[in-house]
Each structure stands twice: as C-alpha cells, then as structure tokens.
Design a protein around this nucleic acid. Sequence first.
DNA 1: TATATGAATTCTGTATTCGGAGTGCAAACA
DNA 2: TGTTTGCACTCCGAATACAGAATTCATATA
Lengths: 238, 238
Amino acid sequence: MAILNVSPRLVEQVYEALLSEIIEGALPPNTRLIQDDLATAYGVSRQPVQQALLLLRNHGLVQDAPGRGLIVSPLDVDFVRNLYEVRAVLEGLAARMAAQHNPRRAAMEGPPLIEAGRAAVESGSVTQEIAADMAFHSFLYQASGNPLIRETVAQHWHYLRRVMGEVLRDDEKIPGSIWDEHAAILDAIIAGDGDRAEGLGLLHIARAANIFVARLQAHHDASVEDLQRRHVRRTKRE
Amino acid sequence: MAILNVSPRLVEQVYEALLSEIIEGALPPNTRLIQDDLATAYGVSRQPVQQALLLLRNHGLVQDAPGRGLIVSPLDVDFVRNLYEVRAVLEGLAARMAAQHNPRRAAMEGPPLIEAGRAAVESGSVTQEIAADMAFHSFLYQASGNPLIRETVAQHWHYLRRVMGEVLRDDEKIPGSIWDEHAAILDAIIAGDGDRAEGLGLLHIARAANIFVARLQAHHDASVEDLQRRHVRRTKRE
DNA sequence: TATATGAATTCTGTATTCGGAGTGCAAACA
DNA sequence: TGTTTGCACTCCGAATACAGAATTCATATA
C-alpha cells in the first residue's frame, strides 16, 4: 500500500507503513518487531520508529513481549467477538442519529452507495467489496452528526480489517445479502424512523459478527490442528 | 501530585503527571506546552516528554497549534455532548450484558457499592462521590464480561473528569438521586432483565449528560460574557 | 505613521550516543 | 547427564546533539 499521507513527519509515515503491513498480514501475529531493524528497513533513525511503536502499542496492535521487545498482537477470537458487540451498539446509535438528523441527506447520498456496493459484488473483487462496505458505513457515521462514533469505530476498524484479511485471504466471498441489509437500514433512515434504523443497524453488525467470528474460529481451530499434526509427525520421527 | 505508578518508564510517569494536571485544571485549556520547559520541570530529558505528548495528542487531550507547538485542548461543549451520547449506548450495553451473564455476581458485589455511594453523599465530599460513582460504573463494565467496554469508556473518562472538575469546582453538588438510579439498574441486572437494565443504564447516562452539559454550557456562556465585559472596558479606555 | 524586510530567537523533529537490563548460550560442576 | 552459574550479546529507554522551520521583533523605507 502506498503511503498516502506525505506528511514530512517520519513518525506518521512509519506508523502508517507498519499499520498497513500488520493489517494486510505482511507482518503476521507474533512477529517480533526490533526497532533497529525497522529503522534500517525504512531508512530512518530509531527515534521515529520508537514513537510509532508506542502508538501502535497504545492501540493494542502490538504488545510487550517481556524481554524480547514487542510483537504483533495475535488476533484473539474472544476479543473480536467483544469488538463486534461494541461496534453493534455504535452502529445502532449512528443509524438512529442519522434518521433523526439527516434523512434528507441520506436520501440524496445513500442510494448511489448501495448501487456501488451491488456493482462491487457483481465485479467479484473482494477489495472492491470491502471498500464499498467501508464507504457505506463511513457515510452512516458521518450522517449521524457525531464525529466521535467514527473515531471510535476507526480504532476498531484496524482489527476488523485484519480479521477480514485473515478470513477472506483464501475463503470464499462475503454473502451479497449484506447489501439488502444496508438498503433496509437506509430506507429506515430516509423514513426518519430512528427506532427501526437502530434495530436494523444493530442486527446487521450482529450478523456480520456471527459470520466472521465463526470463520475466524474455524481458521484458528484449523491452525491448532495443523500444529498438532506437525507435532505428531515430529514426535514420530524422534 | 504524587506519582503512583513507579514504573521505571519515564514516558508513563510524565504522561500520568501531565494527564492529571490537565484533568485537575492545573493546566487550563489553551495552555502552551513547550517540550523543553516540561522536561526541565519534571527533571527529565525532552525525549520522554515528547513521547508523552504524542500519546496525549493521540487521545485528543492536547492538540497542534501550528507554529507554536501544542496546546491543551479546550473543552468543547458539543464534543462533550457527543461523548455522553456514545457513553450512553455503551452503558446500556454493559448493563444488558451484566444482566445476561453475571446477575449472581451483581447480587453479591452490587449492594455494598450502592451503600458506599449513599454514604459518600452523606459525607458531602465531592471527591468521595466521584470515586464512588466511578467504582459503581467500573463494576458494571467488569460484570459485562466485555473488557472493551471498559477500555473504550476509560478513554472518555478523562474528558468527563475534566468536565466534572470544571463544573464542580465552584458549583453545588451532584444530585443524590443518581444513587436511586444506580440501585434501579442493579435491581434489573440482579433480576436478569437485560432489556430493562439496558434502558435504565441508557437513561441514567442521558440524565447525567443533560445536567453536566447544561452546566458546562452555562460556564462557557459566563466566561464569554466575561470576556465581552472586559473587552468593553478596554474599548472604553481607549 | 504604517508597512515591509531581514535577522535573531524559539521550538520542534530527527539523528546519534550512552548506559543498563534481560536473555540465551556455554561451560563447569554435581 | 542434568543443573547451575557466568559471560557475551541483543535490545531498549533516555540523554545529548544537530538541523530546519516558523515566529517575533527591530529596523529601514515609503
């Protein structure tokens, strides 16, 4: 991924670079992160690297590994479940607020996003699907009129993208029905029906949670099984 | 203020020190923060100060003031309103989850907290009231079984404490009725009634929001008026 | 007297250097 | 052969040093 923010601040550039490498899986969970190595890899001094790592640690994407510096945090299934639980209520809140404050705007800007989403599904590109999904939800947060919702969810989004990446890397696609759900939420917002919008928003995220958590769990189980198999092989050999 | 966390990490010590100075109002909004000055004041080098400021900026407590470094973020009334909006749904979620997963534990540990809260109100000490309130809500988050709720709210808590400090510094007390509301939430949780618990939790925070936002607005208006009066005086003199 | 231009100052961001804590390996001993 | 002790190495946090950008103040000019 290209570095979009061309700020002269090395800290931010390193932060963005590390963030996308983690999200996209180039740096898999439990990878050790050595300041010196990163510094030479990015062609900067250790100082900005250290600060970028401080921020990542603060956001939970990397964690202390006492005695051996920092490692990329593993994707804990329980954690992801909790994440979706929180995001669901935030999504509900956003939908309710959008219905209360911006039904007109939703009527204007919403439908094209749904169209774009359906087109992305047709195209079969997972990347495009994810982008369209993000665009729709971002719009929702914006229309809620409460910038804090977007900021809070943004923190979570890093993890969700990691999960999506992990799950979709070799799995089949996202079910296209999510765009029916999006359309239903949008309808409720345009109708100004806050209660219904909230309920549908909540439900939508709860469904997504079920799908992704189940798949992540399956992945996790598979990798554990794999480890066990290897272990058996090695034990046999000895 | 004493440094409680005796971690050998200077960054954290400086962070904590700055945080409490901001929360308690020792560093009022719009105060300029100069790395060098802070470093000599705390008796450390600029390095840990810079990192602590980076974290504070990331949390929104300080912000860039282009060309003149960093300043303490002003307490924006709209922002606080949004904060309470988000916290309300999180509080509702916490109450619902606690009712679903930990009614027994709530029955054990809840009542003493209510007692302590009522005692704090009797004592008339604002500090104790705030502590008791925080204890009750912390318990709720813990009982929800979702650690993310606590973490997310913790981020917000800094601001809420600033608001409380600002409002309660010279104002009258918090209404004692909040402990009736707490008791009602607890009842619903013990009864295992998730819906009722959620509704009451939401309502409780919404009420608190009304009180504090209104008072903060009043403060703000008063200070604006004050500025205008001064301006008039100065204009007359000229 | 108001405005523009230049230098000095201030402050930040980055690089480099220093000291110390922890780990892992190896050798010695039981 | 298993355990323990000591040493070397790795790596991090903090201090110091350096360079550049922005502001402010003073001076000169219209």
